[in-house]
Design a protein around this nucleic acid. Sequence first.
DNA 1: CGAATAGTTCAACTATTATCGAACCATGTC
DNA 2: GACATGGTTCGATAATAGTTGAACTATTCG
Lengths: 106, 106
Amino acid sequence: MSGARDLPHPDTATLLLTDVLFALSDPSRLALVRRLAQGPLEVAACQPTGGEVPKSTLSHHLKTLREAGVIRNVPEGRQRYVSLRRQDLDERFPGLLDAVLAAPSQ
Amino acid sequence: MSGARDLPHPDTATLLLTDVLFALSDPSRLALVRRLAQGPLEVAACQPTGGEVPKSTLSHHLKTLREAGVIRNVPEGRQRYVSLRRQDLDERFPGLLDAVLAAPSQ
DNA sequence: CGAATAGTTCAACTATTATCGAACCATGTC
DNA sequence: GACATGGTTCGATAATAGTTGAACTATTCG
């Protein structure tokens, strides 16, 4: 596989609850999702606040979230924009994202 | 550690969202939680419907759920009763369990 | 007490995930 | 075209999680 321009995103109707829960069960991924709830970010801005992490590690977490259907990752010029698939998640799993975002973050 | 009569259960106020999400992210554990939503079960009845699994495997999954704070596992005579910590979860993570239970199971 | 029953814990092994450097791919700029 | 920039993918290794048989603990019953 080589630098595919458009990364694959699963259809809303096929999203699996267990995949979503797993993707959200990692503290750093969950923290990112909380930030994405306030608006899209470019990949570089998805770095955990405070610590720098290698690009490949960040990309791996984005992949996990994307393949679970939690985020969308689309090219935009030379960068990529990462956004929460909020409506899709609300449609498929009503109330789930709201509950997760409302929960104590620690 | 030897056959402790009363297994440890985390306090409601200390439950971590990521631990709960992780515990629920396994299909067989999630299926069990759905069944527990209808009432407590003895451990033997926690077997996945259809396939038999070794006692040790089942016990391991129960431990994961218990340590995350999702279930309670209490001795009752010679058996143990497993139940959902529904109120505790609702108190700590309002709406989460409802959303999970309402979600499509596949 | 001895045996049966119900389940947890231990230890070893397998499988899945996480981490990270290096290679690679597109886009934009000179 | 050459090069810098922004990111993904690959491959290897480390860490974590799942699976299971065997050993062990507690309780009940004869």
